[in-house]
Simulated assay, not measured.
Amino acid sequence: MIEVVLSTLGLFFFASLLEISGGYLVWKWLRIDKRKIFGVIGGLILFSYGIIMTFQPADFGKVYATYGGIFVVSSIIWGYWVDKKKPDRFEIIGSIVVLIGVAIMFYFPR
């Protein structure tokens, strides 16, 4: 069981890195820098995010619902590391609540 949890969490966090970094490059292209290369690279990274998600062992709806929670936490981490925005206590509490929900949805036995 622990191997499944670690591999699926690894896939979820890798996918979130791809989605957030790809979206960030598209954001940079359209809102900040205007160089098309940011958009092209960002689009390719976003495409690869979609492929990585297919490696999850569950069905589409369950995977994407769970991923939503991982995305929330990853976005807070991205904001801290890249945008240098320290999360406040409510963002941290909310992230913990989301992770509890993720664990219940994806990992509790049926």
Rank of each mutant, 00 (worst) to 15 (best):
Met1His: 10
Glu3Met: 13
Glu3Arg: 11
Val4Trp: 04
Val4Glu: 15
Val5Ser: 05
Val5Gln: 06
Thr8Trp: 00
Phe12Val: 07
Phe13Met: 10
Phe14Gln: 01
Ser16Cys: 14
Leu17Thr: 12
Leu17Glu: 05
Leu18Cys: 11
Leu18Asp: 11
Leu18Thr: 06
Glu19Trp: 00
Ile20Arg: 10
Ile20Thr: 14
Ser21Gly: 03
Ser21Phe: 11
Tyr24Arg: 15
Trp27Tyr: 14
Lys28Glu: 07
Trp29His: 14
Leu30Asn: 01
Ile32Tyr: 04
Lys34Pro: 03
Lys34Trp: 04
Arg35Ser: 15
Lys36Leu: 15
Lys36Met: 12
Gly39Leu: 10
Gly39Thr: 01
Val40Pro: 00
Val40Asp: 00
Val40Lys: 05
Leu44Glu: 01
Leu46Arg: 04
Phe47Asn: 06
Phe47Glu: 03
Ser48Asn: 09
Tyr49His: 15
Ile51Asn: 10
Ala58Gly: 03
Ala58His: 05
Asp59Thr: 08
Asp59Phe: 07
Phe60Asp: 02
Lys62Phe: 01
Tyr64Ala: 04
Thr66Met: 05
Thr66Tyr: 02
Gly68Ser: 13
Val72Tyr: 15
Val73His: 08
Gly79Lys: 13
Gly79Tyr: 09
Trp81Ser: 02
Trp81Arg: 12
Val82Tyr: 13
Lys84Pro: 03
Asp88Arg: 09
Asp88Ile: 06
Arg89Cys: 06
Phe90His: 07
Ile93Ser: 05
Ser95Tyr: 05
Val97His: 06
Ile100Phe: 08
Phe106His: 12
Arg110Glu: 04
